[in-house]
Simulated scan of single mutants.
Amino acid sequence: MDFSLDILAVLFLVAVAAGWIDAIAGGGGLLTIPALLLAGIPPATALATNKLQGSCGTLTAATYFIRRGAVSVKANLKPIVAIAIGSVAGGWVLQQINAEILVLFIPVLLVSIGLYFLFFAKNLDAETEPRITADRYAVTAAPAIGFYDGFFGPGTGSFMSTSLILLRGMPIRTATAHAKLFNLTSNLGALIYFIFFGQIAWVAGAAMMAGQILGAYLGAHFAFKGGAKIIRPITVIMCFAMSIKVLMSVLQG
Rank of each mutant, 00 (worst) to 15 (best):
T58H: 01
Y64H: 15
G29S: 01
A89Y: 02
G86H: 10
G146C: 12
V81T: 14
Q53D: 02
L13W: 03
I106D: 05
F3T: 07
F12G: 08
F65R: 09
L38K: 15
N98I: 11
G91P: 02
I132L: 02
L36F: 15
E100K: 12
K74I: 03
I132S: 05
P79W: 10
T140G: 04
I33C: 11
L104H: 05
A48I: 07
E100Q: 12
T49L: 09
P130Q: 12
P107H: 12
L59W: 09
S55I: 14
L124T: 14
A89F: 14
V93I: 12
A75C: 00
T63S: 13
G146E: 08
I21G: 00
P107R: 09
F117C: 06
P143F: 13
A48H: 08
A121R: 03
P143G: 13
F12S: 07
V139H: 11
T140L: 03
V73C: 00
I113C: 01
L115G: 13
L37D: 07
L11I: 14
G40D: 09
T32H: 07
V139Q: 09
S72F: 07
T63D: 01
D135C: 00
N123P: 00
G28C: 01
Y148L: 07
K122H: 06
E100I: 08
L11W: 02
K78G: 00
T128S: 13
D135K: 10
A39W: 08
G114C: 04
G114L: 08
L104P: 00
C56M: 13
S72Y: 02
G27L: 08
A75V: 02
V103L: 06
V93K: 04
P143Q: 12
A48E: 09
I80W: 01
S55Q: 14
P107K: 10
P42D: 12
L38S: 15
